[in-house]
């Protein structure tokens, strides 16, 4: 499979701020790349350079096989962009917004109208098609914005924080739309601060922080960087912990951790769900003493914390999380 997007050594400065400091990334045709990073990491700057809105200070970018500086117009013809803030004209109706963008993508009048109708239907906006976008809710504006970027059936779609500011229900809806598009073969570069979102939608991820790539790979690759899965037991009394540990020791792939105060045992393991069954078998006879058992895989929040030394979202409230050592380097 060839690459729909190739970014090499991208550097962008704004005065004294270095927004991008040598970013490399590629997105395979038909795949979804999640560009992850906290606020101010440089995600929007990457998207703006890739969509011809900004010029890089150094580096090369090819989108759909074309240079974004030399062949800007041809690039624009093959991409769709949904920026960080919904760019819809408030005074136009939903239908008028889509028709306008369709015409500017050089669709014929009739085709623009037909496509607009299709997309309004698909994004659940048919009922609001003839109302000015001013009257739309935040979620409806976002959907209209995405619909506008899809009107000319772009091969490559850029979505900059498509669900930021949406309520949970709209977010789920948006995820479905995006997953559908990906299934239909559109190449997507998606930026997000939500690890769950990247985990759910992206085939591969690139994590950036302060303008540098700090990790890349599949969700599993990233999780593996932080450490594998663990079996966790909570028992009724700390007194049984040594015996429990004794029985399970053979399954551990690394040093187990015992927390007497929390009456908890954490055992690094490898394998699938059958591990859980085996563990319970080995603990035959102890079951009355066991309050809770779980097979825990690190999620991307753990990954993020481990890589950057700070949480991905300020709102995540990670104060009670155990401190993890900052990993050095990425898999680049």
């Amino acid at each position: 499979m060839s690459d729909a997007i190739v970014v090499e050594g991208l550097v962008k400065r704004f005065g004294a701020t270095t927004a991008l400091d040598g970013v490399h990334l590629t997105v395979a045709e038909g795949s979804v790349l999640g560009l992850l990073g906290p606020n101010g990491a440089g995600k929007t700057t990457v998207v703006r350079i890739l969509t011809t809105l900004l010029r890089a200070d150094a580096g090369r970018v090819r989108v759909a096989g074309l240079d974004v500086v030399e062949d800007a117009d041809a690039v624009r013809a093959s991409i769709g962009l949904t920026g960080q803030y919904a760019a819809v004209d408030e005074y136009l109706t939903g239908l008028e917004n889509l028709e306008m963008v369709g015409r500017l993508y050089r669709l014929g009048k009739r085709e623009a109208r037909a496509r607009a109708g299709e997309l309004l239907e698909r994004f659940d906006l048919t009922g609001a098609a003839d109302r000015p976008a001013k009257t739309y809710s935040g979620g409806m504006r976002r959907r209209l914005d995405i619909a506008a970027s899809l009107i000319a059936r772009p091969r490559i779609l850029f979505l900059d924080e498509p669900t930021t500011g949406l309520d949970p229900r709209s977010r789920l809806g948006m995820w479905e739309f995006i997953a559908d598009l990906a299934d239909g073969g559109t190449t997507i570069l998606l930026t997000t601060q939500y690890l769950e979102e990247a985990d759910r939608l992206a085939d591969r991820m690139v994590v950036i922080d302060r303008g540098r790539v700090i990790a890349r790979g599949t969700a599993d690759d990233l999780k593996a960087q932080v450490g594998g899965q663990r079996l966790e037991f909570t028992v009724t009394t700390a007194a049984v912990l040594p015996d429990v540990l004794e029985r399970l020791r053979g399954m551990a792939v690394d040093e187990p951790q015992v927390d007497e105060q929390a009456r908890r045992l954490s055992l690094p393991v490898s394998g699938g769900a059958e591990i859980l069954a085996e563990a319970l078998q080995r603990l035959d006879g102890f079951t009355p003493d066991i309050l809770d058992v779980g097979l825990r895989r690190p999620d991307l929040d753990d990954v993020f914390l481990a890589l950057t030394g700070h949480a991905a979202e300020e709102t995540a409230g990670d104060d009670d999380r155990p401190a993890q050592p900052a990993a050095t380097g990425g898999m680049a």
Partner: peptide
Amino acid sequence: QKGLIDRFRSLPMSRSA
């Protein structure tokens, strides 16, 4: 301010339109 210029600039339309 509303991001519409970004939208227009990302389209394959005339630069002065």
